[in-house]
């Protein structure tokens, strides 16, 4: 069990997105296989009929919704979208995205901070999608964020952690803040590596949805995230530059017999 906030007890350390699957049925099976208890959702323009199937299926799963403000480029757009999401999804949780660059969907640190401040004053629990910048992370905590979601790499790239050093420092400097890696993960080994650093959870979408077999990949990520967490809690060995035999040396047969 882990607890992003005192009021919330969770078993799974995997949060999963609901977009890009080959079908809503496969989405549903993949979410179940992942064991996730929190799913990300969004708000979009739709005709009166479209999107109904998705909404009905996702409600059936009975999981917690984490709506996003994907595509918002200003604090104002993100705040309006968050207010709309709170009403539709009946939750004060918001995955706050304020995008500063269209090419790599990099968060706009200034817009993010401004929007987070407004939303916290409005009573939201803000999950900011941020970079691995330590000072921005500290500013977000200063204004009242209880949780942070740094990227591993740009959204949808599947590249894995671009800057493991920055992620390691962030974890070490903020030991008591729930940190969820959001974006850029492509393989279970990427997810395991950030969990081994001590990250609290991982949020995924493309890596599962775009796999040839999303349901099996969801299971793979579930196991990798559990393995990474177990390793972190177990305390990894110290690395060494030189070899050190693992089999006991005393009693080695034929030892030094040629002398």
């Amino acid at each position: 069990m882990w607890s992003p906030f005192p009021s919330e007890q969770l078993t799974s350390r995997l949060l999963i997105g609901t977009a890009l699957y080959p079908s809503v049925e496969i989405m549903q099976q993949a979410i179940i296989a992942s064991g996730a208890e929190i799913v990300t959702v969004s708000l979009r323009r739709q005709t009166a009929e479209s999107g109904k199937a998705f909404w009905e299926l996702i409600q059936e799963l009975g999981l917690r919704f984490l709506p996003n403000t994907a595509g918002c480029k200003t604090a104002k757009e993100a705040v309006t979208t968050a207010l709309m999401a709170r009403e539709i999804f009946n939750t004060s949780w918001i995955k706050l995205e304020v995008i500063g660059d269209e090419w790599n969907l990099q968060p706009d640190p200034f817009g993010l901070l401004e929007a987070a401040k407004t939303l916290i004053a409005e009573g939201f629990e803000v999950f900011p999608y941020t970079t691995d910048d330590l000072v921005l992370a500290q500013r977000l905590l200063d204004i009242g964020c209880n949780i942070l979601m740094p990227w591993a790499a740009p959204i949808g790239t599947g590249r894995g952690p671009s800057n493991p050093y920055a992620l390691k420092i962030l974890r070490e400097r903020l030991p008591n803040t729930p940190l969820i890696i959001d974006a850029g993960i492509g393989l279970p080994s990427h997810a395991a590596s950030v969990m081994e650093m001590g990250y609290d959870a991982v949020l995924l979408n493309s890596a599962v949805a775009l796999a040839k077999n999303p349901v099996q990949m969801a299971e793979g990520f579930k196991q990798a995230i559990e393995a990474g967490r177990l390793a972190y809690e177990a305390g990894p060995m110290q690395t060494r530059d030189l070899a050190s035999p693992s089999t006991p040396v005393p009693g080695t047969p034929f030892w030094h017999q040629e002398k």
Partner: peptide, 10 residues
Amino acid sequence: LEILSPMQGG
């Protein structure tokens, strides 16, 4: 007016 509905998201 913007009229928005629940949709898949990441």
